[in-house]
Amino acid sequence: MRALICRNWGDIGTLELGEMPVPEPGPDQVLLDIVATSANYADAIMVAGKYQTKPEFPFAPGLEGAGLVVKLGKGVENLKIGDRVMAKLAHGGFAEQAVAEASETWSLFDRMSFADGAAFAVAYLSAHVALRWQGRLEAGETLLVLGAAGGSGMAAVEIGKTMGARVIGAASSEKKLQAVLQHGADHAVNYSSGNLKDQVLELTRGEGVDVCFDPVGGDLFDSALSSLGWGGRHIHYGFVGGVPRVPANRLLVKHRSAVGSSLRYFQNFRPDLLVQSMAELAAAYDKGAFNPVISHRLPLERGVEALRLLTERKAVGKVVVEVAPKKEINQ
């Protein structure tokens, strides 16, 4: 099978298109014909050898994908051959075939394309568990979304609105701010040209926000923490801008909290909440609440370019890699 192959830890530029053996599904796993995958920042971290898991060489990156079930491992009962699905992957999305856990593979929603499925699984499910279970976002509260023009940021904006929150989207350029507003945010602030805390406090009449969804980290964290009101919750979702230090004294003074959110936790320890999150996402999607933004669609041959668009923050929403676009048309 064709794949974008990682043979050594390093920059994503070291990835090369080549041939790999087709993987074999084990118990409780399925083999997928990948139609589309999408780039995630974590793919670059994995290729660099700095991710939480380190696959054996050679491997293909790609933490999610959408396609067709072509083989069932022993014990799989929730899927059948031919099913149109989206899946969270350990790796392998940048290949023509990949193995997925059956419990982390879901049927595409009605009217959902493979491309939208590839853009949905990780971003929307991760954002939902973060806001629903870690941030405990409630209707009527105010949500601040950093990196709001990214894939997970756009998902958080939409999910926040479905939960009944007032949403402030924060991004680094006017172009991205316009995209965030068009995608449903009530307000948008530019943290590159102005002070984030001052802009947020002005919009909230000095009260601050209830929840901050933060996939950025770095220097932005300090201002984001100051944007929280009394009892505010800061969700550490990622650190594309660097890993921040959390000052405990500033949490105590205003009864704030800072929590991490990892999809792996829910997979390993609270799969019941993961099931509930996906059910709520499916219901909202059926009502037309979600519209995944895909700024670029590239073939597998340009997979490195797809990852570069993400790591260099040139994308709005998701970057999808079309592994087998003809199957999208035929299905």
Rank of each mutant, 00 (worst) to 15 (best):
M20N: 03
Q182N: 14
M163K: 09
G49A: 05
A165F: 00
A102V: 01
I81Q: 11
R256C: 09
L144A: 13
A156N: 06
D43H: 04
A118W: 02
L137W: 05
E101Y: 06
A139L: 02
G242W: 02
G260W: 02
L108M: 03
R111W: 04
D286E: 15
G241A: 14
L72E: 04
L181F: 09
A100V: 06
C212V: 15
M163R: 10
Q267L: 14
C212R: 01
G260V: 07
V319E: 10
Q52C: 00
G232S: 09
V320P: 02
F290V: 12
A42T: 11
S192G: 12
G288T: 07
E174D: 15
Q199M: 13
V216L: 09
Y41A: 02
E19R: 15
A165R: 03
A87T: 03
L309D: 07
A155R: 12
G18N: 05
C6K: 08
V246I: 15
P58D: 07
T142G: 14
V275Q: 15
G75W: 08
T204M: 08
K54A: 07
H91G: 00
G151T: 01
K175L: 13
F221A: 07
Y51R: 02
V316K: 03
P244N: 08
Y237Q: 08
N195Q: 09
S257W: 00
F213E: 09
G242E: 06
R245Y: 04
L201A: 05
S193W: 11
L17S: 11
V22K: 13
L201Y: 03
N268G: 11
D11E: 15
D11L: 11
L146W: 00
K197Y: 01
L63G: 01
N78M: 11
M278G: 00
P55S: 04
P247Q: 07
P244K: 02
